[in-house]
Design a protein around this nucleic acid. Structure first.
Length: 260
DNA sequence: CGATCTGTTAGTAG
DNA sequence: ACTACTAACAGATC
């Protein structure tokens, strides 16, 4: 569940289900996800409650009564599950049992996720030198960030130290919508192209958040809906191709996106 | 069976 | 110091 829109959905989910309930019991799963001792998490969470949530890129913060922040990174397969029964879901890595006997689990089958305890959001951001939340970045700042980036544009867009929240899927979408080849050097992009990327970043992320919350579909002219080799490009004549860029599978239309 | 998947990070080499 | 590429992590799904 990993890029910014999916995490936004998880935030809404937690807000709607798990706030302000006293935690009476804590259960932990695979040790490798925990970035400090599991005992410390149990100690901090027990008899506390979740007060509010904050999102920064692909990270979700749950503030507990002490002011500390429980932080989740969803890896590739993490998600939150709230439920009333006492059968713990498969691959639950952290489960908090509330006073009313309902539960919230962080479920993560592939165990690529991470769980931290932080003193504050800004503190955490600094410590991990994360960029700002993609939807909070202003156009000027966006242009400035791309100004001195070497390498291909896709790597720059998905670099969490530059901007937090864009992953493989929506980077491809942004590049497709702007007709930019994913291997184009960032320094070769025109002002117009960079401004297009900025605009599409906001448009796409907000659009995806909306579809996740409403359960609706993305527009047909989105590449995400044709993300398979050989599929017809929604714009016309091209066919979708898959290449590796910075080690990641990258889908694009060679007809709409020419390399620079 | 093998290929693929929305992510990060350590290691290596330049 | 920065940049670029690779492997590794682990399970589900097609």
């Amino acid at each position: 569940m990993p890029e910014l829109p999916e995490v936004a959905y998880q935030k809404k989910y937690v807000d709607a289900t798990a706030l302000h309930k006293k935690i009476v019991k804590v259960e932990t799963g695979a040790a490798k996800l925990f970035q400090s001792a599991q005992k410390d998490f149990e100690k901090a969470l027990k008899n506390s409650s979740f007060e509010e949530t904050t999102q920064l890129g692909k990270y979700l913060f749950l503030k507990i009564s002490s002011g500390q922040q429980l932080v989740f990174h969803f890896g590739m397969t993490g998600k939150m599950e709230y439920y009333q029964h006492d059968e713990v879901p498969k691959h639950a890595q952290l489960t908090t049992v509330f006073e009313d006997d309902s539960r919230l689990s962080f479920v993560c089958p592939r165990k690529f996720g991470k769980i931290y305890m932080a003193e504050g959001v800004e503190d955490f951001q600094k410590k991990h030198s994360l960029g700002n939340h993609a939807l909070d970045v202003k156009e000027n700042k966006f242009l400035e960030l791309l100004q001195n980036k070497k390498g291909n544009i896709k790597a720059a867009l998905t670099d969490q130290h530059v901007i937090a929240g864009i992953g493989n899927l929506y980077a491809d979408e942004m590049l497709y919508q702007c007709g930019i080849h994913p291997k184009s050097k960032t320094e070769n992009l025109s002002e117009k192209e960079k401004k297009c990327l900025f605009m599409e970043m906001g448009k796409i992320l907000n659009r995806v958040i909306k579809t996740k919350t409403e359960g609706s579909k993305l527009p047909d002219n989105y590449l995400s809906r044709h993300r398979k080799e050989g599929k017809d490009c929604p714009n016309g004549k091209g066919r979708v191709e898959m290449i590796k860029v910075s080690g990641r599978s990258t889908y694009f239309c060679p007809d709409c996106q020419k390399e620079k």
